[in-house]
Design a protein around this nucleic acid. Structure first.
Lengths: 208, 208
DNA sequence: TAGATTGTTAATCGATTAACAATC
DNA sequence: TAGATTGTTAATCGATTAACAATC
């Protein structure tokens, strides 16, 4: 089932997932790749190709059952399992992530915040306790943590990403303005906010 | 100079920009595409191709002057011009964006926050005033706004994106969990946080 | 000049789209 | 069965990489 599915395909799965949810909410029971392609502004061909990487979810002459396809993609994306996250940095962004409640319904659980500021230690944000960053290594060694979200300053991020990798973390959600330097088997998902603003800026300046 | 440069190329420019900044900070004066490729984990070929879309910044036998290349890419990205941003939604994420001071050095200026909660009206976040969301349309018509950042709930985002488009906004920084439905000439840069978490989740579940 | 490295063309690779036989 | 639409193979397109002549 899973022989080297390209990043492009994987990155489209959450989008399918979103559109299917919407269709469920609208009470749509079945949909053809053709109809879905019109909604999503993709080609029907691509949709069928993408889905067939994971199995034959459709039925000739009928299309796809919305509910069951939604469920299948959810399974593929792993929303049926819990994922434990720690957040490095209890600044504005780190706290905003923890306060947002939209992640939990897909199995993402914030376990702890960590900050260099010791005066924050012991406080809680949305029920999630803040610890000092020096406790982070020990914490991931003694808890079942899947993902580390990094919302700390660049220099601290360099240091902590390596330290957390050594402690066993392999999945990173990186909000810092650098590329993490980690071994090949670390999976880093970057959210480079400044980069995305700069892309907008490029479009503003070059495409009047 | 500017005949249809692909999105892939444009999306790499901020990254070049970051690495060049770092090299400047380290006091590096010149760099070859070969050296840079090792740093950035790209091919030297790609770097030379990419840069040559915008002009011959290098010199045979020498390489690229770090400072001047940084400056040139900055110009291309438009960091020498100011960009005015409004933020729809004064929730945790909206406030975090406004409070983060790392954008201003590249010309990004937050002009106003807007929220449905009228009790917030008149307050300020990091010196940026909060207004009621019903004032947003009038505000963009009477001020020089380039970018609208959306950090509001889905239903409100659908409504407000159309309204802002009609008021003249063409550039959107979208943090909501939907794809905006706007005419072709609207440029939307999505920051789909849940999508990126789901990609991580996929990797966790499918690549042990 | 010789060496280094670019700018640029050509080759390769991978991803997207088109086409159609299979089948519900 | 006939019509619709998938699953899948083949064709196309675009992006990446390799190669090398140009040139500093």
């Amino acid at each position: 089932m899973n022989n080297k599915i390209s990043k492009a395909v994987i990155s489209r799965l959450p989008r399918y997932y979103r559109y299917l949810k919407e269709l469920i909410d609208q009470g749509v029971e079945r949909i053809s790749s053709e109809e879905l392609s019109r909604l999503m502004k993709a080609t029907a061909s691509q949709i069928r190709q993408d889905l067939n990487h994971f199995g034959g979810f459709g039925q000739q002459g009928y299309g796809y059952n919305v509910k069951s396809l939604y469920k299948e993609i959810g399974k593929i994306l792993g929303v049926e399992e819990d994922h434990h996250i720690i957040v490095l940095g209890a600044g504005n962004l780190g706290r905003a992530l923890v306060k947002y409640n939209g992640f939990s319904e897909h199995g993402f659980i914030f376990c702890s915040l960590f900050d260099v500021d010791e005066t924050l230690c012991g406080k809680s944000v949305n029920g999630v306790r803040i610890r000092t960053i020096s406790e982070a290594e020990e914490y991931v060694k003694t808890h079942n943590i899947d993902i580390a979200a990094l919302t700390i300053p660049v220099e601290k991020a360099r240091e902590m990403s390596v330290l957390l990798y050594q402690a066993g973390i392999r999945y990173f959600w990186n909000f810092t303005n650098i590329d993490l330097q980690l071994p090949e088997d670390a999976i880093v998902k970057d959210v480079h906010l400044l980069d995305s603003l700069l892309e907008l800026s490029y479009r503003i300046c070059n495409e009047k």
